[in-house]
């Protein structure tokens, strides 16, 4: 029986950043259409752009590691 290969740590890092970033971006989109400014600088919509940055960073980890791990 072939020994199972371990998924790399970068796969898990990418996955978590993408999922969490998507949730944060989702709240940003919600506040964009239903403004609810209870925090300082909320008008800058930090959820929206920070969530997107997380998603992009996550994809940069996830896609290469997924390709590499699946090829194995």
């Amino acid at each position: 029986m072939a020994k199972e290969r371990m998924l790399s740590i970068w796969f898990f890092v990418g996955l978590i950043l993408v999922v969490m970033g998507t949730i944060v971006t989702g709240t940003g989109v919600y506040f964009l259409f239903k403004p609810h400014y209870t925090t300082v600088l909320a008008h800058l919509h930090p959820n929206l752009w920070w969530g997107l940055i997380m998603v992009i960073a996550g994809l940069l980890f996830l896609i290469p590691s997924a390709k590499r791990d699946l090829r194995k």
Partner: peptide, 8 residues
Amino acid sequence: KRYYPTGL
């Protein structure tokens, strides 16, 4: 608390 809205 000051800067982070729901989600963040």
